[in-house]
Design a protein around this nucleic acid. Structure first.
Lengths: 90, 90
DNA sequence: AAAAATGTGTCAGATTATCTTACAATGGAG
DNA sequence: CTCCATTGTAAGATAATCTGACACATTTTT
């Protein structure tokens, strides 16, 4: 009775992401251009997003609303990546 | 750390359903025409499917492969609906 | 203050996706 | 063979997305 979609599977077109995040297509593309997100592309070159991407957009929104700029968001994401790769326990 | 998508939320365009089910667009539309599935539509009149729809398509595929025809699938689905509404415990 | 950078809106032209309708092809049942 | 069920395929129309450019309002920098 489960069956969710793998969080990394890219199966959402931009319009759905717009609806789920309340971001404009312009914003979504701009954030990609700034390196905050890297959607995959289908055969027709259209962006396809994953659940992980969507969660990331929501985080971006939250940070932006708090006054953080793109560079800040990028830095915060980079820091989080380090966290995941670094072992702090011992 | 989760956040899946509600199983009834219609957020997949037909192409994604094709990839996830290995059904052709023709089959998907035909099954709808036969009343096996009722996708919703976006503002542009394009079909939008839910996870529930996709699971249903997979069931259809399985039954078809077993030799069941459309009418049979429909009957089986109808029976399942009854199961859900009927209380057998007591 | 003037100039430059940020973040977003919007438009145009091109490409891709989907829709509906219709007709063809295949294969099974009688 | 004929009928029917299922799928393929094609055409023409509409919708969605892409890229690139320019505009605009806010900061930020010089």
């Amino acid at each position: 009775m489960k069956s969710g979609i793998p969080r990394r599977q890219a199966c959402f077109p931009i319009r759905v992401v717009m609806e789920m995040t309340n971001l404009s297509a312009r914003q979504i593309r701009y954030y990609e251009e700034q390196g905050l997100i890297k959607p995959s592309r289908n055969e027709g070159n259209q962006r396809m997003f994953s659940l992980e991407d969507i969660e990331r957009f929501l985080e971006i929104k939250k940070l932006i609303k708090q006054g953080v700029n793109i560079a800040g968001v990028k830095a915060i994401f980079a820091a989080k990546e380090l966290e995941k790769k670094t072992d702090y326990d011992e």
